[in-house]
Amino acid sequence: MKLDQLKVLRAVVETGTVKSAAESLNRTQPAVSQALKALEFQTGTELFDRSGYRLELTAVGRRVYLQSLRVLAEAEDLTQLIRHFEKGQEETVTIAIDAAADPNLMTPVLAGLQTRFPDTRVILRAEVLSGAIEAVRSGAAALAMAPAIPVMLEEEGFDYRPLNGSVMRNVAAPSLLDAMNAPRTLADLRRFHQVIARDSGQASGLFDRELGVQKGQRRWYVSDLHMKKQLLVAGLGWGRLPEHLIAEELAQDRLRDIVLPHTHLSFEIEVFVFRQRRSAIGPVATHLWDAFAH
């Protein structure tokens, strides 16, 4: 049994057809079919039910597939470990930062990183909602700093550490609040545009719906919170922003809280730093992780 055969098995299960698996692996369909047949010959049983359009795992096939995922993960960890030994410290390290997280939490850590690893390139990825989790899950980022719920991080199998809490506040410019004429319910806000930051990830699971957006709500979409703030200050809409991002605007009365009787529009969030639970972690990523513990 070869790792290559297990990779073919994983690709076929994930894509559902031999053709799609061949495309994802950049191989011919006969080569993929041959690898599957060889694997079935070695296990002594059929791994797939081929009666339908999509290949479906048999009971034995599912057990083999689940075990193969563990074997492939171990092999990928070993490959990563060898590469770290060969290269020493990482040439590049990527950090995903959610727009709702206070960047002041990151700057002292980055200052220490710059002093200790001056030759390592650092890439900071700005993410929104599920984007940070997806970046770490896919390996595109070594770690991330973002608001999250502990159970979500547990389900992803991440290592995580709490950093601080913040408050998301629903705000609008004074001119727009005057136009709202003392709203009493969420329904009173429907005709005023809500400005919403688009999810930078695939919005799966908990994120696969627009939280805090009511049916029939007029809405505009932006790709980052700074653009969102600019539109809110200009009186072009209302929306939710993290407290640290609008402290100055609130102090200068350029933005105000939207207050509705019996309705709590603002809510608290908890920011975490998290990473994949991998055995092979480079010295730069390790330094970053440890720095957040102090």
Rank of each mutant, 00 (worst) to 15 (best):
A280K: 01
P147G: 03
G165Y: 10
A21W: 03
Q5L: 09
L105W: 02
E134H: 03
D98P: 12
R278P: 02
Q114P: 05
T115V: 12
Q42G: 04
Q252W: 00
H226W: 08
F267G: 00
A111P: 04
I196W: 13
R137H: 07
V12M: 04
H294G: 14
L129M: 10
T17D: 02
G201M: 08
F274D: 07
T45N: 11
T185W: 06
E248A: 14
S138R: 07
R161H: 13
H84T: 12
V93N: 05
G88I: 10
L6G: 04
Y160P: 07
A31R: 12
D253W: 03
A182K: 14
K87H: 12
G201N: 02
V233L: 03
R198L: 14
L245Y: 06
V128K: 00
S68D: 05
K228P: 01
L176E: 08
L129Y: 11
V32T: 10
A35M: 10
G165F: 11
E40R: 11
A234T: 02
A73R: 14
R125S: 07
L124D: 02
I133F: 06
A280Y: 03
S279V: 14
F274P: 07
T43K: 13
D253I: 02
T94C: 09
I258R: 01
E40N: 12
Q202T: 15
L47S: 07
D178P: 09
R184S: 12
A280P: 04
E268G: 05
R161F: 15
A142F: 06
L6C: 05
G157L: 02
P108L: 06
D77N: 15
R62V: 11
V136K: 00
Q5H: 13
P147N: 00
G61R: 06
F41K: 15
T28K: 09
G216Y: 06
L241G: 05
E243P: 02
W238A: 03
L255C: 06
E156M: 10
D253L: 06
D77G: 08
G201A: 03
R137S: 10
Y53V: 14
L110I: 01
A126V: 11
V284W: 08
S223N: 12
A182D: 15
E268S: 12
A234L: 08
Q194R: 15
